[in-house]
Computed example of a mutant assay.
Amino acid sequence: MNPDELLSKYADGERDFSSVQFIEADFAKVNLSRADFTGAKLSGVRFFQANLSRAVFLNADLREADLEGAELPATDLSTADLMGANLSGANLSFADLTGADLRRSNLMVAKLINANLVGVNFTRSFLIGANLRGANLMGANLSSSNLSQAYLCEADLREANLEKANLQRALYNEKTRFPEGFNPPKAGAFCLAPQVNLTGENFSGVDIPGVNLQGANLAYIDMRKANLLWANLSGANLNGANLSGANLSGANLLGANITDVNLEGANLSGATMPDGVVHAVSQKRMPAKKIKHK
Results as ranks from 00 to 15, higher is better:
G139Q: 10
R104I: 02
S144G: 02
C191D: 01
E180Y: 13
R177C: 04
N121Y: 00
A165R: 10
A165K: 08
G84R: 08
A130L: 13
A100T: 06
A187T: 06
K186E: 15
A160G: 05
K175E: 14
K111Q: 15
A115T: 00
L107K: 04
F178V: 03
G119P: 14
A160K: 02
N146M: 02
K111M: 13
L92Y: 08
L102R: 00
K186R: 14
L137W: 06
L127K: 07
R133W: 13
A187P: 05
A85S: 13
L132H: 10
G188R: 08
L107I: 04
A170G: 07
S143W: 00
S125H: 05
L112T: 12
P179K: 06
N91I: 14
A85T: 08
P185H: 05
A170R: 05
A150Q: 03
A150F: 02
L87A: 05
N173K: 01
Y151W: 09
M108H: 10
N86Y: 03
L72T: 07
G181H: 02
L171P: 01
A187F: 05
N116T: 04
L77D: 11
L82D: 07
T75S: 15
Q149K: 15
R103L: 01
F94Q: 14
R133P: 01
L132D: 05
A170K: 06
L92T: 10
F182V: 02
T75R: 10
F190H: 09
N146I: 03
S145T: 04
L97V: 03
A95K: 09
D96C: 10
Q168L: 08
A130K: 10
A140Q: 06
N197T: 04
E163Y: 04
C153T: 13
D76F: 09
A193K: 15
P73N: 14
A160S: 12
T98I: 07
A140P: 06
P184G: 07
D81F: 03
G99T: 08
A115Q: 00
L72H: 09
K164F: 11
F182G: 03
R104V: 01
A115E: 00
G188Y: 08
A130S: 15
L157T: 01
T79F: 13
N183A: 12
